[in-house]
Design a protein around this nucleic acid. Structure first.
Lengths: 336, 336
DNA sequence: GTTAGCACTCGCCGGTCGCAAGTGCTAGCA
DNA sequence: TGCTAGCACTTGCGACCGGCGAGTGCTAAC
């Protein structure tokens, strides 16, 4: 175990296959290189180490990293300075998207890997309020305010012409009847109650299709990717042909969204190499954390790098960041 | 001139230095390779061509490209299909940011280079309307609606507590007094008239600092970069060390903003190689166009690639796109 | 003014070779 | 029985080198 730990630590640091001599010199295990060689041969047989070629040192396999992550690595802690950097960055923002976005930026710059972040969709939020504003007779600005401090506006072209008075009436009824309803349900499924209170069926139809269109117009930009260029510095991506597929993958926001949001339960998850399935993520590791509002997971944030990842540091950063982000969101919500 | 044209055309196509034989074979100039060699030696002496090394063919210099762009190149025209792709993409959006953003995406995918786009700032717009909504007693949602169909919302934490009634009063006064004012001037320089109409100096102060904070909170994300990975396919960026500085430069949104928005006059500009100044853009060419609302330039859009750029095609795409974008924005505005 | 011929230049490619790092194995020692 | 020193073996990597081919510039002739 101590040899596996030493090999992994050293390889994470140097990106060079680690030989028995190196370990004997740099890590005081109290045994000679020859002994280490014997043990390393065993570790290779067990699948924890592998050899890029016969005359080279050893590097950890995915399994080796997994074992390392699950128990061997020494947990890192962060400088006061770094904690402070995160906290001030988060206290500078109020809008939730910006909060999450700048969190992703901080994570990228602190870890020097790529970072990913998912912002909650307004559709998943509980409606707090909706505002309807006529920009032109047939263009309406719809502003949704959702419960975890989420605000989104949509500009909708309508078939029907609207006066500001009509919109004000609809707005008032909606806000009276629908507070606490999931935003997703605002579309065609507008409730009977709204129809009753509004009275006018024409107005009701217009409102329903207005909201439906507003929800359909929706921002697809829910995943932020920051610091992708950091991957350039990693020796494993020195080769363009290895880097390109990865960067191309990072452009596919829907795929990223799938991966990140599949990680629904609260807490921290590490996916190593092949655990990400086949494809461009095969040689990468992904550390994911969730952030919450009111005890409920509303989004995810992740770090992506080569399998040779500084796991302990990344885990420390992610723990702190997820915590701070959740707290910042909570502060926004529970103001006096 | 015909030889310069042939060399440039061929080099743009193949990315290989062009020899006299190749030109004689592929372009029917009616002369032999020997003649072409003589002329090419002259063109090199004049600075239009250069030789990567003694035994290689010629490639155009920046000056050569400049001459080519200014008169030699044969203007490209676009397929009906491509025009159609642009038009449908633009008709699917209504919000101005999305319109510009998806324009940038279309340009990137059509040219296979990187594309840049600047969205107008709400600060530069004329105020059409402002909405103030209390989210919490000390958190106000400010929605600005600007004249070229620009909408932006900001969430502001305030020192003072606001009731919705107070906000409604301020909002009414602001909308009465300040329609047509530049959004930028909404902050501290709130006009005397507003103070007079409001009466209450406390309310006036609160409103002024609320708007000031709202403007300060402002989105710094005004430049979109799309298709940066397309640059991977260009042989001149095969080398990571050549590509990285460029991608790093593309991350500096403020520098990009400077470059693009310095191009203020209406129309199309091409900057070739060193014309971009020293630094990461030295080996690149930039084609910039403006888009307008009501005859006024409100934003820019650009294409970035190696100096060996398909100028004629890029110019055709940019002409069309700028035109279509301006028209789409005009349609949004002049609805019946 | 144009062209054919020819000697010359130089980057690229494939092969060879020595070096260095690291291994596995064996024999010896506590 | 576990550990260690010694040693032969493997193999990737970088340097060196020579032939090839593309392309040039020059000269002489038309």
């Amino acid at each position: 175990m101590r040899i596996l730990q030493a090999v992994t630590d050293d390889y994470i640091l140097t990106a060079e296959p680690v030989g028995s001599r190196t370990i004997a010199r740099k890590y005081s295990l109290g045994v000679s290189p020859a002994t280490i060689r014997n043990e390393m041969a065993d570790l290779e047989e067990l699948g924890y180490l592998q050899q890029p070629h016969a005359s080279a040192g050893r590097i950890p396999s995915d399994l080796g990293y997994r074992y390392y992550v699950d128990g061997l690595m020494t947990p890192a802690s962060l400088d006061e300075e770094e904690r402070w950097a995160i906290q001030t960055e988060l206290s500078r923002r109020t809008a939730i998207e910006e909060l999450v976005h700048s969190t992703a930026q901080v994570v990228a710059s602190m870890t020097r890997y790529a970072s990913l972040a998912v912002v909650p969709r307004i559709e998943d939020a509980i409606l707090k309020r909706v505002e309807l504003i006529a920009l032109d007779p047939q263009v309406v600005l719809v502003v949704f305010v959702g419960i975890p401090g989420l605000v989104e506006h949509r500009v909708v072209e309508t078939h029907r012409s609207w006066t500001q008075e009509e919109l004000a009436r609809v707005e008032a009824v909606l806000n009276d009847c629908l507070e606490g309803v999931s935003v997703r349900d605002l579309g065609r499924t507008l409730y009977q109650q709204v129809a009753d209170v509004l009275g006018d069926p024409d107005l009701y139809d217009g409102a329903a299709s207005l909201l439906e269109d507003a929800l359909a117009a929706g921002g697809d930009e829910r995943v932020y990717v920051e610091g992708a260029i950091n991957l350039f510095h990693q020796p494993e991506f020195r080769d363009v042909d290895r880097l390109r597929p990865l960067l191309e993958f990072l452009e596919q926001k829907d795929a990223l969204l799938n991966i990140l949001s599949s990680h629904g339960q609260s807490g921290l998850t590490i996916r190593i190499g092949q655990e990400n399935g086949q494809g461009p993520l095969e040689g990468c590791s992904l550390v994911m954390a969730t952030y919450e509002v009111g005890g409920q997971v509303v989004g995810q944030i992740g770090v992506l790098g080569p399998t040779r990842l500084e796991y302990s540091r990344v885990v420390a950063v992610m723990r702190l960041v997820a915590e701070e982000l959740s707290q910042a969101l909570a502060r926004r919500r529970n103001r006096p």
